[in-house]
């Protein structure tokens, strides 16, 4: 069973070498999609043992994820993991995330920051932004998951073929959830630990996600 990890990266020269090195023991292949970084991200990722795809222009995390997923599917991946380049996820948890797929219990596994394990989420995120995102997911998409915006997920091949990320920016997380539920994919949540080095998505970013989702819905 071929497990491929897709890591979208933009100006991540500080973290990418460490992230790829830590992920390597848990997967068969690592694809880093360098989203037109201005630094040494691509070079360092390659040196750490990743296969590097390079976007000629910056298109956003969602776009980079889809490029990497397309390539992984072409390269005969059986399980595709989406992982962040900023060193906030724990590579050692990959084994726990892919386990339900290997056992055949689920078709997609989503990492959740809100189950048993402790993550150092900023309080605004924990008590304001995430509950709001959960509410939006519940109201608009009828999705009831504990983590509405997790970037750590694993998909089996059949699911990855069904999902097509159209939102180039950060709205892709909600879009993936929506497509999973629309396609009636068997989803399981697994607790993960997230270490925040930066604040990440702000409230304004959340509003942009909602706008992007609406616009994407109109132009579809």
């Amino acid at each position: 069973m071929k497990i491929t990890c897709v890591i979208p990266a933009f100006n991540e020269e500080k973290n990418i070498f460490q992230v790829v090195t830590q992920v390597r023991p848990f997967v068969n292949e690592i694809i880093v999609v360098d989203d037109c970084s201005q630094d040494k991200t691509a070079e360092l990722a390659r040196r750490a043992g990743a296969l590097v795809l390079k976007h000629a222009i910056n298109r956003g995390q969602g776009a980079a994820l889809q490029t990497g997923t397309d390539y992984a599917l072409k390269n005969q991946a059986d399980i595709i993991i989406h992982f962040d380049a900023d060193n906030q996820f724990r590579a050692s948890e990959i084994a726990e995330v892919v386990e339900p797929l290997i056992q055949g219990r689920a078709e997609t596994v989503l990492g959740s920051r809100f189950l048993e394990k402790k993550s150092n989420l900023p309080w605004q995120k924990k008590y304001l932004i995430m509950p709001l995102a959960r509410l939006v997911n519940r109201l608009f998409f009828h999705i009831t998951l504990s983590d509405p915006q997790s970037g750590f997920r694993a998909l089996n091949r059949a699911t990855a073929e069904k999902i097509k990320i159209n939102n180039d920016g950060m709205a892709h997380c909600s879009e993936i959830l929506y497509q999973l539920f629309r396609n009636k994919v068997k989803v399981e949540e697994v607790p993960i630990t997230v270490t925040y080095h930066q604040y990440g998505q702000k409230f304004s970013g959340g509003l942009k996600i909602i706008t992007d989702l609406l616009i994407q819905k109109i132009i579809k």
Partner: peptide, 13 residues
């Protein structure tokens, strides 16, 4: 934007 992304992806792959 969507078309540019698609084009970028095709070129990359």
């Amino acid at each position: 934007d969507k078309n540019i992304t698609e084009l970028t992806r095709i070129v990359t792959l």
